[in-house]
Design a protein around this nucleic acid. Structure first.
Lengths: 169, 169
DNA sequence: ACAGTGAGTTTGTTTTCAAAACCTGTCAAA
DNA sequence: TTTGACAGGTTTTGAAAACAAACTCACTGT
């Protein structure tokens, strides 16, 4: 499957992955949320090669995740800023950060701490249900076809009547 | 930067990305949360080539995100199940799904709907502050060095005293 | 005149990826 | 007893992407 073919899949994960499903893109976005905005700064902080950085920024601008805005003229220089669409990726980045903090941190502990200015506390991000506000457990969630569902190929496994083997556990 | 070098970065995003920062891996995990467990099922649903699927599953098992458990003998057949570490990726996947639902859905609407069994409602996932329970806005969050912080290279941009240009906006 | 900066592009090499075909062990039907 | 099917992979080989280093361009400041 080609990269670009993902955009047309009837799956929100596939479509999102077609935009951010690349290790450099995720690291660039991390830096965007840390207020990094300039080509040279991204390049130095990430250790990414310049051609790759240029191509990733170009793609993020094309997908309206970042906007290229001039911050000086003669010579014109640009910086890359998150759009609202880009800022909406905050839960994705925070979920990734939190998983890394819990499961991949070194002996010294987590590298960054997050403080919520609204309440003043150092916090962890928690994913909750918009209906009742309780934290989400995957086993407490059922999935149904939505209006944008396409082929049965994308249905959850238990909706496909597949002959089960006898010897299963 | 090599793929493997990411694991040793003092950044939780980089470390997480070293595990899941690959488009196929994210799509495989999506299917895991939809109760897909077998090699052939992943292969058919994703349209992924067999060698890539085998290598991704191998890596996820190595990283303790999936466990390879036999479900029959003679011949021994395995299925791939999420571990607790893997289930903890649920917020990451849900954040990705939600962003795709909001920003990348086709005209027909979102492909899947999620129902929370605890409260019965169809819901959206929301990322909130563990301290006060309010939804997170990136502009309301400040970042500080944690015990695992390494070099100043990984600090937020505004903590690095860099000479600012005169002509900035 | 010369060095420096910001934002890239070019070039040649190395790595990784992907498609198709192939392999292995077991069972079941012809 | 061959044949075929199924599950779960591995091998092989050509294409795509990433890498490092150098180069370009349009300025600015000394």
């Amino acid at each position: 499957m080609r990269w670009s073919a993902l955009e047309n899949e009837a799956c929100s994960v596939a479509r999102t992955v077609s935009v951010i499903g690349d290790r450099w893109t995720l690291l660039i976005l991390r830096d965007c949320f840390l207020r990094v905005r300039r080509f040279e700064d991204f390049q130095e902080r990430l250790g990414i090669t310049r051609p790759i950085l240029a191509s990733r920024l170009r793609k993020l601008v094309k997908d309206f995740v970042l906007a290229k805005v001039p911050y000086q003229e003669r010579p014109t220089r640009y910086e890359y800023r998150l759009t609202q669409k880009g800022r909406d990726l905050y839960p994705v980045i925070m979920a990734i950060v939190h998983w890394g903090d819990i499961h991949m941190a070194g002996k010294k502990g987590r590298p960054l701490l997050h403080q919520h200015l609204a309440c003043g506390k150092t916090f962890d991000p928690v994913m909750v249900c918009s209906g009742c506000g309780e934290p989400l457990d995957p086993r407490q969630v059922h999935v149904h076809r939505g209006p944008g569902a396409a082929s049965p190929r994308n249905l959850p496994a238990d909706e496909k009547k597949r002959p089960r083997l006898v010897h299963q556990r």
